[in-house]
Design a binder for these strands. Sequence first.
DNA 1: CATGAATGAGCCTTCATTCAT
DNA 2: AATGAATGAAGGCTCATTCAT
Lengths: 192, 192, 192, 192
Amino acid sequence: MSDNEEVREKIIKAAMRIFSQHGFFKPPVRLIAEEAEVSKGLIFWYFRSKEELILEVAVRSLPTDIMEQCLKEGIGGGELLRCIGKRYLDKYKDPILKNLLLHTLSAEALYPSIRAEITKLCGEGLRKTAIMAFGSDDPTHIMVVRSFFGGLLCYVLRPPQDISPEDYLESLMEISLCCPSSSSSEKGRSSK
Amino acid sequence: MSDNEEVREKIIKAAMRIFSQHGFFKPPVRLIAEEAEVSKGLIFWYFRSKEELILEVAVRSLPTDIMEQCLKEGIGGGELLRCIGKRYLDKYKDPILKNLLLHTLSAEALYPSIRAEITKLCGEGLRKTAIMAFGSDDPTHIMVVRSFFGGLLCYVLRPPQDISPEDYLESLMEISLCCPSSSSSEKGRSSK
Amino acid sequence: MSDNEEVREKIIKAAMRIFSQHGFFKPPVRLIAEEAEVSKGLIFWYFRSKEELILEVAVRSLPTDIMEQCLKEGIGGGELLRCIGKRYLDKYKDPILKNLLLHTLSAEALYPSIRAEITKLCGEGLRKTAIMAFGSDDPTHIMVVRSFFGGLLCYVLRPPQDISPEDYLESLMEISLCCPSSSSSEKGRSSK
Amino acid sequence: MSDNEEVREKIIKAAMRIFSQHGFFKPPVRLIAEEAEVSKGLIFWYFRSKEELILEVAVRSLPTDIMEQCLKEGIGGGELLRCIGKRYLDKYKDPILKNLLLHTLSAEALYPSIRAEITKLCGEGLRKTAIMAFGSDDPTHIMVVRSFFGGLLCYVLRPPQDISPEDYLESLMEISLCCPSSSSSEKGRSSK
DNA sequence: CATGAATGAGCCTTCATTCAT
DNA sequence: AATGAATGAAGGCTCATTCAT
């Protein structure tokens, strides 16, 4: 039913706001119910348990959707990095999602399903990105992508006030792109 | 007195193991007491509340100590980055501390004192590093340091299996050092 | 709604029995829950805290209701004293309420709201009674009422076995009524 | 040892202050230790348990000492009442003792030894007083003494501000003394 | 679908009491 | 005598979850 989904969505949105501010474990379900303006009991009609709601929110908090969309668009090279970077910064400029990302990374140690999700993102996702961006998934290029993502995460963690997201992204891309082209072959050797 | 400190330390160490595995909020104090092999009551003799114990653990989980030590040693340039990188990877190769770092970053949204600590680390700490490493804290160099730290964090988040920490660090440093020398001036202008 | 009030009342009644026997502070909430045959958690659904339950019981334990009813009936003279005395002895012949009265008087030092209630009872209530009983609230008549109430309290504290409540009341009233008529004027002067 | 007794006394005095303010059951032993400026452990050297300390304080809070002293002095009639009344009002004009008296009366339901003490006071004590004051312990005279004590208790409960303890006592005595002489015989009859 | 009363497990914390020093 | 670290038993209260309505 469509009504069904709307309510479910309302609960998830409320949970995201509450979890963002208080983490996954401190806030009682009652708080989420109040924020969603539904009864406490209703939450357990849509979600088997609080944990199920946490997992639903956690999955949405990761950048999985961004990776998938950008990789699906078939673009390559710097454009792929720009695509990912742009949407990444856009998603996490929302402080709610920024906090949720951290809570989710932290909760990885607790929920195997979150761990699996992140592992896929950092394993397969990273490799695919390297291949589509640089045509190679050798350690050096993986490293560049890794550093690129690290820079993005760093921005999310502490957005610097003296630079816009756009400029930040350009600057980050320049760092990522300037070296590997020339050093990728040497790197392979020197890292030995 | 000396017994005093020993017991206190034993509790903190136990708390680090437990918190690392279960996060700060799910594990009851009882679990920490059992891990430390002391009575539950004794924990509240040494710490006013569970929160106080959490904060003690959280502070130890951040890389504040590393930043301070390396900056104090008076080294500069790539050597400073290597110093920080080496100790950073060394500290967080311990899975206990790796998890604690994530829990602490996540708990930032909940505890103002953690927030202050991280803010200092990412503000003042980053700037000082940029100055001592590159002789400048203009946005571009800040960005490079940021990307460098991002890469370190990324390693901690998902240590890649096909590369040793040492090689990872060298590779990351190369990326950080190769560009700014040439682009710093241009970047400084373009980012204006 | 009606079920609501019934449960609430059941809890209060159970609390009165338990508090009467063990005082306000020694018996754990669990005991009240068992006595009321409800779960411990439910008590905190109806009362924010144990203290709130204590205060509810405390207020019911004072003779406020008696004073109000008798004063409202518009009777005066000895009849008013008899009305109060009769209901007073009737209320506190129940050993549960007798004990609760003492616990409440004792708890006055701890709860401002109880203190306020008692102050009203002993200030305004006593004066109104003097006026309606003797047509005057000068010190002497206040004193007589005071002595009358003292006698009632004394009976509650230690009901003598050789005299019925009815006879006790008559005897007490005789003492209260025989003197002031003759001595009120002198007393008024001499107490100046 | 004299040092012994001094410390013991210091603890009791501190306990009286603390118990007076917070009742017997809410304040932890730690509070009494701090008030007495001794260690918590020492209290358990002088008193087997907290309960033992409570009982010690409770006994001192009752007017047993006053009754004994006045009865021992061999005076009779109104002078006896005056002796008791004077010392009674004097003892309980101290708000600490006033509160303790109430706490003790309330704790009667909890401790058999307190109950015994009060029973003796209200039984034997009252009768002896009646005999020595009026030469008779028939119900009427007992009643007068009872009313007298009730008036004293009432004063302690709520000392009226418009009358001094001395005047209060005189007034109370007048009420107690004026009637029984004439009514004692009739009373005996009318009380059935 | 929706509510909210009801449950019971469990949590943080306190506290009387003990005991090594 | 005196201290204060250490213990373990509760205690008040919260909260996820269920269920009758």
